[in-house]
Amino acid sequence: MLAYFLKRIVLAVPVLWGLTVIVFLIMAMIPGDPATAILGSYATPENVERLNRQLGLDRTLPEQYFIWLGNLLQGDFGRSYSLNRPVLNEVLERFNATLILAGASLLLCTVFGLLAGIVSAVRQFGWTDRIVTFFVLIGISMPSFWLGLLLILVFAVNLQWLPPSGMYAVYGGGDLADLLTHLLLPAVTLAVVATGVIARLTRASMLEVLRQDYIRTARAKGLSERRVIYRHAFKAALVGVIPVIGIQAGFVLGGAVYIETVFQWPGIGRMLVQAISTRDLLLVQGGVLVVAASYVLFNLLADMAQHALDPRLKS
């Protein structure tokens, strides 16, 4: 088991490396000449050339890449010109907030998605199943940024139960309870689509498993229906669902861009949107790299969980 985990971790390295290549290539596609953009269109050719040399832009693309990668590995992600501080510091600070939001959402969508899927499969064609199926359909078709606005209107504006935005109250607050009240609406909003996807898949997976011969064996042993469903069927169904939970981590991390904008959550998604509008490309690049890397790690975790659960994968 340990050897396998180590192997998986080693295998994640080329993926991470690939991420840096893609990000670098995308950034290299920027139309126009960065030096001219920085110096303005009245710059003298000499000045442009000097700046190009300073920026390393007179070298070949592979050379530029490896210099850039070397800097990354030393923690030098460049300097954000709009914030006038190192990119890495800003990104890590923001990423913290995103991780709280995405983690809470991932927890919500996993718990509720699995529950809804199981209940729906067990009560197949019954009313519970229809209601779950209906909400799943609505959930996966819902623009999350719109749902967020609706929830703000209902729970923050009309009922005034929860704060409409931010991560902590401006005055006072700052404790865990304050964080949770601010977290609830955005986390739920972000979880809705993923919950629907997981519920759908769990239902299908459970139905598939419940028709297997080993379920008949479990019944023939005289096990209670609860044990048949929650021990025998669920464990087998979970093996198929876990990779999808890993994929949902990607949707949650990506969807955070909308939700953080709607709820003004000080996370990396909102930072990215602001950075794009101010054309602070180094900041965009740093943010994208960090989030993508964390997605790779999420998938790695899902893979390990699946492996721990299914002994057949060992051989």
Partner: peptide
Amino acid sequence: DMLMAFPYILLALAIVAV
């Protein structure tokens, strides 16, 4: 596979950024 290693929307954001 490399493209799929990105969270979906993030890649789109990077492209729009450029």
